[in-house]
């Protein structure tokens, strides 16, 4: 879970960096910059979206598996 937390914090911070650079690059306001960040995901085709979701879900598999393994061990 710690790994997911770290990745999520870093992703949020990097999204901030990307938005800030977009804003300094001539975007009309910060809201538009934030919208620009998400735009590439809105125009994805179905197969791209499927791969995207699969790749993101794969991040959660090891921590969830570890969590259940720990729980089973503690029950025993």
């Amino acid at each position: 879970m710690k790994v997911i937390g770290i990745s999520f914090v870093l992703l949020l911070a990097l999204m901030g960096v990307a938005a800030a650079l977009d804003f300094f690059g001539g975007s009309p306001d910060l809201n538009a910059s934030i919208r620009n960040i998400f735009n590439p995901f809105l125009v994805m085709e179905t197969i791209e979206m499927v791969i995207f979701i699969f790749i993101v879900l794969c991040v959660f598999i090891p921590p969830v598996r570890q969590f259940f393994q720990k729980r089973n061990k503690s029950k025993q």
Partner: peptide
């Protein structure tokens, strides 16, 4: 352990 999650980032 961080390689894949940060790769996705």
């Amino acid at each position: 352990q961080l390689a894949y999650p940060l790769g996705v980032v």
